[in-house]
Write a protein that binds this DNA or RNA. Sequence first.
DNA 1: ATAATATTGTGGAAATAATCACAAACTCGC
DNA 2: GCGAGTTTGTGATTATTTCCACAATATTAT
Lengths: 209, 209
Amino acid sequence: MVDRVVPDVIVSRLPVYLRALQFMQMQAVTTTSSQDLGSKVNISAAQIRKDLSQFGEFGKQGTGYNVEALIAHLEKILQVEKVWDVAVIGMGDMGHALTRYGGFLNRGFRITDCFDNDPAKIGSQAGQYIIKDVADIGKGDCLRGKMVMLCVPAAAAQKIANKLVECGVKAILNYAPVHLSVPADVRVQYIDPVIGLQRMAYYLHEKNE
Amino acid sequence: MVDRVVPDVIVSRLPVYLRALQFMQMQAVTTTSSQDLGSKVNISAAQIRKDLSQFGEFGKQGTGYNVEALIAHLEKILQVEKVWDVAVIGMGDMGHALTRYGGFLNRGFRITDCFDNDPAKIGSQAGQYIIKDVADIGKGDCLRGKMVMLCVPAAAAQKIANKLVECGVKAILNYAPVHLSVPADVRVQYIDPVIGLQRMAYYLHEKNE
DNA sequence: ATAATATTGTGGAAATAATCACAAACTCGC
DNA sequence: GCGAGTTTGTGATTATTTCCACAATATTAT
Ligand SMILES: NC(=O)c1ccc[n+]([C@@H]2O[C@H](COP(=O)([O-])OP(=O)(O)OC[C@H]3O[C@@H](n4cnc5c(N)ncnc54)[C@H](O)[C@@H]3O)[C@@H](O)[C@H]2O)c1
Ligand SMILES: NC(=O)c1ccc[n+]([C@@H]2O[C@H](COP(=O)([O-])OP(=O)(O)OC[C@H]3O[C@@H](n4cnc5c(N)ncnc54)[C@H](O)[C@@H]3O)[C@@H](O)[C@H]2O)c1
């Protein structure tokens, strides 16, 4: 295995494999194959084998893959065997839903800090968190970690993103429905349900109801 | 323009273009170019022109594109010049956040029905909606439309998806962190923040905090 | 009018990604 | 221990996607 750079498209599939494997593990499945895993994520078996071969040889001929071992490998590759600190910015409906969500910890993340700019919210309790002032980001060790989930209105998102970049944030999960301009060393992933709906609407036939 | 099938990868970019164009429109920008739009969505100008050329000729040499006209074309292509009825299933934190979200209507969608299986929630009011019993899906005209946002726990998602398919649903926006198996004529889009975070974690260097 | 500048739409080249197909290696039943 | 059946990892092939480059056309300046 040379130290060649792994294509983005492959990296982006790994979390999908990992999620499916963890689902199998929950059901006490101990072994799988590229065929089996592929059928569960709608990806060809050859594709899965090629993808995994970028990182090593994790399977055994005739048998397939040990679920637990492959999970461990993928977690290592994705760097989610540790737990990353993530901040939530914008404690409206979405921010609150995220802080109440229990699905982060066993997949490599935990929310450590929450921010807002609404004086009525700053200082108040949200579950186990005390909402901090977004203006304090950058002051002291207010913002732990390098990852942020951004849940502010679209109009405020770019401005805050700029500030986050200044403060060393390297990964932004952006819920605001706008594109963010950031330096090349900062990653952004977008979550916009409307984009998802529109991608599907293209394929709908006939009338609405 | 022959009636060739448009690659999925192109369709999936159109909503991103549309979102950026609508953002420009909000700022009273009347004209743009492939260059300009490209810089705003981080996609090459050539790519944008090639994508659009699949559907017609919307630009003018020397000038570029009229924002309003291009929006109208994209809305037509994506079939979001009309408004689609969408149901929400699972009225927990996420379901509630979605019903309270104001960003659907002007992008082609509206929530018409909400469902849950919790007796304590069925019949109760959630904003302007009365939560219906998920068991009633399929009975009468309880479920309008062909699109659903699925916000139930992972363990329940596939079962409900099966039922939705039976009832003629053709598009599922799935918030549950599991892959759904559906017939080829049914579309699924996935929203899982952890997948987004994991895709970014791969590229992070150094330690957590 | 003319030159300088801007921008589109597209054919073709280049780059990237997906698929095929098979030797090698393992399992299992008898 | 042998044959039948599985499944991996990968080189080669095919398919898809992206990028380049430029003629054609429009705008703007002078
Ligand atoms: N709620 C949903 O289901 C949903 C769906 C799709 C997209 N979104 C997007 O997610 C984002 C958040 O949505 P929401 O429904 O939670 O909105 P919301 O209005 O309920 O909450 C926004 C929060 O951000 C805070 N805020 C505003 N400006 C800020 C600033 N400059 N700095 C820090 N905090 C600031 C507000 O005080 C508020 O608490 C929005 O961009 C929205 O478009 C939400
Ligand atoms: N809240 C978040 O921020 C978040 C983040 C990521 C993913 N998700 C996922 O989104 C989904 C919903 O999350 P949530 O936080 O709203 O969960 P939640 O537990 O708050 O709500 C789930 C709702 O679904 C209902 N439900 C359960 N089984 C049902 C069934 N068979 N039929 C109909 N309704 C049923 C429950 O009564 C409840 O109202 C989950 O799959 C969760 O993993 C949520």
